[in-house]
């Protein structure tokens, strides 16, 4: 007993399974196997449609997170568009996971932000504010300010205020107070703004 050295080196990285095998394993009944397959398909362009097709139906969140990690590395408008569909999902975990993935795609997501900001579903606009909260793009703060200034739904405005808070500057004070004046009957928005700017 005590400190022991492993008798042999851990297996050198096992040979990676073929793409065909990994694609097959995306449908394996074992979630760990599906998760490993999703991660193993990193950088495989031909796998993208297969991965996208499994984001919605996948029931294990660990597998879904792995699917999204691999997909987010394909920072293209096609992937961003396909993922953004799930921002309207009734499933909160799926919406949130997709928003987190989209926020790591600064190359493609900015192109779809204007459409998302104008989406008729206010829940999609709330999720868009979440995406913008972490999207590393010089336009993020401007888009959030536009949402605070113009969006007709108080929940969207509150989400945008929340997303803006970590970057809040003196130049935003009047913007936030105007938002409270636009929705005088929304106590949560009032509370959020008062906590931020007094």
């Amino acid at each position: 007993m005590g400190l022991v050295r492993r008798e042999q080196q851990p297996a050198e990285a096992k040979a990676a399974p073929s793409v065909e095998t990994l694609l097959r394993q995306l449908d394996d009944p074992d979630p760990d196997c599906r998760r490993e397959a999703a991660l193993g398909l990193d950088g495989v362009a031909e796998a993208v449609p297969h991965l996208l097709a499994r984001v919605g139906p996948e029931t294990a969140s660990t597998v879904r997170d792995a699917l999204l990690t691999t997909l987010a590395a394909h920072d293209t408008t096609e992937v961003a568009e396909a993922l953004a569909i799930h921002l309207a999902s009734d499933e909160a975990d799926l919406r949130t996971s997709v928003a987190e993935a989209l926020s790591t795609m600064p190359g493609s997501v900015p192109a779809i932000i204007p459409r998302l900001i104008d989406d008729p579903d206010h829940d999609v606009r709330v999720m868009t504010a979440m995406v913008l909260a972490d999207l590393a793009h010089p336009g993020s703060l401007t888009w959030l300010a536009d949402m605070i200034r113009q969006d007709p739904h108080p929940n969207v405005v509150t989400a945008a205020v929340d997303a803006l808070l970590p970057s809040l500057g003196p130049e935003h004070t009047e913007l936030l107070r105007d938002a409270v004046r636009r929705f005088p009957d929304d106590p949560f928005l009032r509370f959020t703004v008062e906590a931020a700017v007094g």
Binding site: R5, P10, E12, A13, E36, L39, G40
Partner: peptide
């Protein structure tokens, strides 16, 4: 030397899924 010998060292990139499969 006893402690040196008891610790196994590996070269690996934590972002590399294929090589990280060796760790379980």
């Amino acid at each position: 030397a006893g402690i040196r010998g008891a610790v196994t060292l590996h070269q690996i990139n934590v972002c590399d899924t294929t090589s990280m499969r060796a760790f379980r």
